[in-house]
C-alpha cells in the first residue's frame, strides 16, 4: 500500500533523496569503521613507559665463578658456571610467578605451585610446562654485561670472561 502520509520534504519530486540518505549513512558507516581502525592506532601507545627489556648487569667481575646472582627486579638470575656466564629467566613458565634461588637445595623453586628447576633451567618437578628460558646476554663496548629479557635463547650460549 503506498505511503500517503504527507512529508515535509516534497521540494524535490522524484529526486534521489534515498541515494543521498544512503550516501550519508554510508559515509557515517565508513567513518565509524575508520574510527574503529583508527581507534586501534590511538589505543596502541607509540611510546612506552616501561623499563627497557635490555638490562645492564654491570661488570662481569661482579659475578664470581660458581655464583648464582638473583636479580628480582629484572626477574632473572646471572649464573657464572664453569663454561661462562649466562642469564636465566626467573619467571616461572607455569603462571609467571617469580621463582627463588634456593642455594641449600641447589635448585630454583617456584613459590606458587611448587615447580622446581635446575640452575640451567631444566625442570625437576612441578606443573611448569617448559624449562626456564636462557636470556640473550652479551658484553657491550664498555665491557658491561647486557641481558635482553625479551629474547630467549634457543641454544645454550655463554658469555666468556677472562679469569
Amino acid at each position: 500500500m503506498p505511503d500517503q502520509t504527507p512529508h515535509v520534504e516534497r521540494a524535490c519530486p522524484g529526486c534521489n533523496r534515498r541515494r543521498f540518505t544512503t550516501a550519508g549513512v554510508g559515509s557515517l558507516a565508513i567513518a565509524g569503521i575508520g574510527s574503529a581502525v583508527f581507534g586501534y592506532e590511538f589505543l596502541s601507545p607509540n611510546a612506552l613507559y616501561e623499563p627497557s627489556p635490555i638490562v645492564d648487569a654491570g661488570k662481569p667481575e661482579r659475578y664470581p665463578p660458581g655464583s648464582v646472582t638473583p636479580d628480582a627486579q629484572s626477574g632473572l638470575y646471572v649464573v657464572h658456571g664453569p663454561e661462562g656466564i649466562y642469564a636465566l629467566s626467573a619467571v616461572c613458565t607455569h603462571l609467571g610467578c617469580v621463582t627463588a634461588w634456593r642455594p641449600e637445595l641447589d635448585m630454583v623453586a617456584c613459590p606458587c605451585h611448587g615447580s622446581k628447576f635446575h640452575i640451567d633451567g631444566v625442570k625437576i618437578e612441578g606443573p611448569a610446562p617448559r624449562p626456564l628460558p636462557w636470556l640473550k646476554a652479551w658484553l657491550n663496548d664498555e665491557g658491561n654485561l647486557m641481558i635482553d629479557r625479551s629474547e630467549a635463547l634457543t641454544r645454550k650460549q655463554y658469555v666468556r670472561v677472562q679469569a
Binding site: 502520509t5 504527507p6 512529508h7 515535509v8 520534504e9 540518505t21 550519508g24
Partner: peptide, 18 residues
C-alpha cells in the same frame, strides 16, 4: 483540515538533527 502541522520525528526531525 489535513493534519499536516505535525510530521514524523523519524525521519524528518532525525534527519534535520543529524
Amino acid at each position: 483540515k489535513a493534519g499536516d502541522d505535525r510530521v514524523m520525528t523519524n525521519p524528518d526531525a532525525l534527519l534535520r538533527v543529524a
